[in-house]
Design a protein around this nucleic acid. Structure first.
Lengths: 253, 253
DNA sequence: CGAGGTCTTGACCTCTCTCAAGCCGGGTGG
DNA sequence: CCACCCGGCTTGAGAGAGGTCAAGACCTCG
């Protein structure tokens, strides 16, 4: 599945230190922007976990919050349960992305993280990370920046509730595209790791609407689509959708 | 206006250190949970700014990002501009709340913050705060926790796009109520510092819808309303609205 | 090959937006 | 002190985007 599995599961030394400085994801993961000395500190505390199979949980709300995770290969979805017990997907995590940032300082995780396909993660003990952040200014800054970026990212996505279905889906596809590009994969051709229903759940729409929109995009020649394999054929046209059909600006000074 | 102005504007020693340990907001502001020693460190770096008048900007995207701010009295709105130049309100800030967390590590602020009424803030130089976070583990933890909580808060509000208008508005009112309660004011009776249009903008609805819903709530006896003065008469009933009318859970495993 | 889940497509309905008209309240100027 | 004005608020009627329900195609896996 994942063409970018860093260490094949069978060969993985589970729980053995990983050489971040050798990792293909070092330019889009926690160590981004840090120098060799700082990265070596990470290598002392980070451990690789054995691969999760599809649908397995990385953590649930009953698990004590003691680790952050980064995705090494595969994909995770992160969900909360709403008051009726419905799943509400709050995030998808691709390789190089940090999981658990919303639960720092909490006793337990605030939601659950589930593998969408075979997924490997590295675990980062939070206490040790905080301790590193105390001793190494660059690590401290990197951590604060990551958290801050995540807030900004959430703010951007908060816009969802103001966009129509077409804009939400397009923004989603372009976001995925950019993130795949960032971790070294094709930004125009990839396999959607999640179902239509999961995309819909994440975007606050229904699976039917996602289906209809994707069909229309295909008819318009914007994308090619075969099941979950998607190819973005005309990114500029997609980007233009984001600024069309604006909601009125009446109530905006 | 604000019955909780800590230092009256005329008497304020602008740019003089403020005694956090004497501040009425110390239990809901940055120093929450810290001991006297740590709080004293804050007092060395925090400065009070002169009050902003209604509609004045605290910062804009052209301003170098060098400070965080906490609201001492009054209210701010924080906005981004979308691709058409429309205002998109991402947050309202009440007394004791930290502004600027989404721009840590960025060169400039990512949006603008504007006073909704006469508003006083304390400024916190980011570099000095990061330095404190290095030396004092409790301050470091407090800062990380604050950022993490903000991510979680944004995630919760991401639900907006999945809720109907009634649920969004109710959640908004209950959230405001809780936040007013937290900073020592009445949780059931307060003055909305923002217009209907601004509430709508924040929630991804229209001013008309807000108006209609508030009118209906009043007719149902859930609230009392006089202009922007609102009284929540039956919190449990309001809370029940949040779990009614659920969107279907079909696509949720 | 069959079962179960996912995806697609159609028809209908509901919620919220849109557009419009009128109201209210605060501020300004005569 | 009153008349006027302006922005914000309220309320109504109609339209449209997306949800709902349903049927059938497709795909995967045992």
């Amino acid at each position: 599945m994942s063409t970018y599995r860093y260490i094949s599961p069978s060969a993985a030394k589970i729980n053995a230190p990983i050489a971040c400085h050798n990792c293909p994801l070092k330019h889009c993961c926690l160590p981004l922007g840090l120098d060799r000395v700082d990265i070596e500190e990470f290598e002392h505390i980070i451990k690789q976990r054995k691969p999760l199979h599809k649908n397995e949980y990385l953590f649930r709300p009953v698990d004590p919050m003691q680790q952050l995770y980064t995705v090494l290969s595969g994909t995770l979805k992160h969900c909360y349960l709403d008051m009726e017990g419905n799943e509400r997907i709050s995030d998808f995590y691709l390789p190089g992305e940090l999981v658990g940032l919303d639960a720092i300082g909490a006793d337990y995780y605030r939601g659950y993280a589930q593998a969408l396909d075979t997924t490997t993660v590295c675990s980062i003990p939070l206490h040790q990370l905080e301790e590193l952040a105390g001793r190494f200014p660059h690590i401290r800054q990197r951590l604060l920046n990551l958290l801050s970026r995540q807030i900004h990212y959430s703010h951007q996505n908060l816009n969802h509730s103001r966009e129509n279905a077409e804009q939400r889906l397009t923004a989603f596809l372009l976001d995925l595209s950019a993130r795949y590009g960032k971790c070294g994969r094709s930004a125009t051709r990839f396999s959607l790791p999640m179902s239509r229903g999961e995309i819909a759940n994440y975007l606050g729409l229904t699976g039917e609407t996602i289906s209809r929109l994707l069909s229309r995009y295909r008819q318009q020649g914007l994308i090619e689509l075969q099941g979950r394999e998607i190819q973005l054929l005309h990114l500029p046209a997609q980007a233009a959708i984001l600024s069309s059909n604006p909601l009125p600006a009446k109530h905006c000074a």
